[in-house]
Each structure stands twice: as structure tokens, then as C-alpha cells.
Design a protein around this nucleic acid. Structure first.
Lengths: 125, 125, 125, 125
DNA sequence: GTGGTCTAGACCACG
DNA sequence: GTGGTCTAGACCACG
């Protein structure tokens, strides 16, 4: 569920953050679900608990998780700004920059069509 | 023309690469145009020539620039794969990841519409 | 009456202490009033009796409660130092630190005015 | 300048954050001032560089510092919300809670007067 | 030299 | 057992 890539250059704690956000966006993780404990996650992934704790704290700062010391870390209630802030933020930025470069919006819509079509066959991760 | 942001977290040499690609996509830089010399660029931007050289090297590896020793660095002829490889690469990746998360393509198209509309008024960078 | 927040980061036993002091300051709890039994409190709040016992012990150390073995825990007689020691202690500390930072006392008085004004409408907790 | 108290129970990284905010509020640290390097600070304070780095990152998340890897960490430009968000946040909360407890605002103003008077003599930290 | 990330531990309070 | 904090290192990219 939380497959990490040690060679990607993306920091491990950031991969954990991104993957968690993705799982919430997908609906796999829901409000008040308990995350794996820092130690369990670390042992399963073969990394140090510190790195998991750093990821969980980052997610807590962003109000995506909340933690109860002695109990565990849990998924927060997602409000309307969740998608806006985390899922669409990068998309919007890149669309802005492409359009600013004089590329028509219809070109982008066609690309989305073709990506969506290709994706249909591949329903594994 | 090559405004850099020291605080953005993006490495300077990478900012130079991105900005160069953007200027080619915009048409500001054209085939066989001469890039500023490493030393001129470095002095103008207030950075070390090493960083500029690294960026030019990177762009040469990607066939975006070619260099003639003793003459300088020049903009390559852009073939059809230019947009595919550099301008759309990030866009495609993020669209794939959003669609993989179960968000419909129509939601993305609407966002593009609204971004394009907002952009119309703001025609400065 | 004793609503607790598991996610606030403030230890449960400390929340119980603070809430008890607040209720005494408000006049809801008066001299010689009997506190709920450790077990009753724990069941009502959905927490372990250990935590309640720890809070009561703490309050007893501070002479805010006194206990009669086999009878229960009771609210002590509040002397003049009660407000000084518990209610105003935090206020004084923070005012000192703000004034030490060179902020004039009139700025603080104005803030109090405006907070008091806002509070008038909202007379629920 | 950054005296820390190992026995206070307040985490070291949080003491560093608070002290930095205090020094900015006082005007001792100004816009674009360079903070001591992570390693220098750690050696001077006799703590591990990790703890200093954690504090600096926390301050960066709060837009109080900005860092340029390879250069150092610097004080951000403080906008109008700085005092509101960091200096007055605790003050406002405690005033609200005291007023909610039925204590008149005039009592608080008198306390401020008397604290300010006492502070005048003590102009050391 | 600088910040950023990570390891492999440790001890703590809370429950 | 849980998260929170900290130690005392390490290596990395960037400049």
C-alpha cells in the first residue's frame, strides 16, 4: 500500500506524504481511519521510525492527519479545500504556465482525452 | 529575462534550464540563436559561472542547445518531440495521477476553462 | 460539563484540572461541593479511571480539592490567592513577555476592549 | 542570545522558535538577517544540529524564516499578520477565557498597569 | 560550508 | 504500545 522508491530522488518522508494524500483522494483512507503506527510502518518499509514520524508530522501540520499520543495517528475530516489545496494545486500551476506560453486550451483538453482513454485499459497502479 | 529565485528550493541550474525551455516554447529564443556566454550570464545574474555551465551542459545533453567551442552555445532546431518531451511531460504526469485517483476528466477540463478565462485579463508575466 | 478534546495535545488529566479550575472561577463549583467519583467521571467521559485519579491528585496537591477516603473528593475553600495562583498566572506571564518585547500597554488594553465587545454577543461557550 | 532551558519541559526546538519570534518582535532580528548556521548554533548551544534544523524548518513552515541551501537561513519580511498570528495569539486566547469566566475587563487593565510599572525598573532580560 | 535527509538508536509522558 | 523529542553521527546536492 505504501510502496516507496529509494532511488527516485524524492525524499522518503515526502513520498509517504504524497502517497497518503493520494490514498485519501482515492477514498482508500477515510475520515478517522487509523494510520499504521510509526514503528509498524517503519518496520514494514525497512526505514527508520524517525522518517515516518517526520512524514506524519508534516501531514499533521497540513491538517491531513491528527494524532493522539499513546493512541495513534488518524485521518482528519477533509473539507472542501482539500482537493483545491493538495490535489489540484500542481495541476493548476502547470496549466497556467502552459497557457502563458501561448498554447491553446484545446490542445490540453485533447491531451486529457487521450490520457483518459489510455488509462481505461490499465486499471492497476 | 532570466530572473532566478534563490529561495524557491528549485536548484538554480534547473531554473535556468526551465526558463530556457520556456523561452523557446514562447518563441523568444529561436533556432540557432546564440545564448549569453557563461560568464556574461553569471555576472548578470549574480551567480557563479559553474552553475550556468552546468545548466548549459544539461540542456546540451537534452539536445536543446548545441555548443561550438570558442564560439558559444546555440539553440538547436526543435523537432516535433520538443513539446512532447519538455513542455507536456509534467502536465501528462499530473493528469495521469489525478485521473488514477478517480477524478473525472471533465472536472479537469472545467478547471482549464476557468484558468484560461482568468489568464486573459493578465497578459503580463 | 467536562468536555475533553483528545486531539488538542493537552494531556487529558491537565484538561480536567483546567476545566475544574474554570468551573470554580465561574462559580459553578462551590466550596465543599462533591466532585463526581473517579469511576463515574471516567465512565461518562469514556476514559480510564487512572487519568481522572491523576487529575484529582494534582488538584489536591494544589489545595483546590480535598478528599475524604471512602466519601469522595470535594472543592476546597478558595482563598484570595486562588485567582492569583491559577487564573491570572498565565495572563501575567504573557503580558510580561509582550511588554518586554517593547509593545505598549495601551495596545493590550485596546485588544481587551475589542475582545470584550465581541464576547458580549456570544454568551454560550 | 539564544539561552535555552533544558529543564523547563518545553522542547528545545520550540524554545528556539519562540526565542526567534521574540527577537524579531523586539527588532533585534530584522528582515533578511542571517541566522546562525545550523551547525554553529548547535555547537554554541551544546545540542545536536538536528534539533536546530527542526526549529528552523518549523519557522520556515510558518514563513518566519526562509532558507537557501548552501547559503543559510534568513529572516523573512514580516507582514501585518505577524503580530496577530504569533505575538498576540496566546494573549487573545487567555483574555477570552478569563472574560468568559465572568472577570471584568477593568480587572485585566489594572493588572497590565501594575505589570508595566514593575517592568520599568527591570530593563534587563 | 550550507541546509536537507536519513540512520539507528534512546528516553519520556500518556494511557 | 503510542507519538514526541533528542542524540550523535552520516552522506548528499548546491555553490
Amino acid at each position: 500500500m505504501f510502496s516507496l522508491d529509494l532511488t527516485s530522488g524524492v525524499p522518503l518522508y515526502e513520498q509517504i506524504c504524497n502517497k497518503t494524500i493520494e490514498l485519501i483522494a482515492k477514498g482508500t483512507l477515510k475520515e478517522n481511519d487509523r494510520m499504521p503506527s510509526v514503528r509498524t510502518f517503519a518496520k514494514d518499509a525497512g526505514i527508520t521510525p524517525n522518517t515516518v514520524a517526520k512524514a506524519y508530522q508534516e501531514l499533521e501540520n497540513k491538517k491531513i492527519l491528527y494524532s493522539i499520543p499513546g493512541k495513534g495517528s488518524f485521518v482528519s475530516k477533509m473539507d472542501d479545500s482539500f482537493y483545491k489545496d493538495f490535489v489540484f494545486a500542481d495541476f493548476d500551476n502547470i496549466v497556467k504556465s502552459i497557457i502563458r506560453n501561448g498554447i491553446g486550451k484545446d490542445v490540453l483538453k485533447e491531451r486529457i482525452e487521450s490520457i483518459a482513454k489510455n488509462q481505461e485499459g490499465n486499471n492497476h497502479d
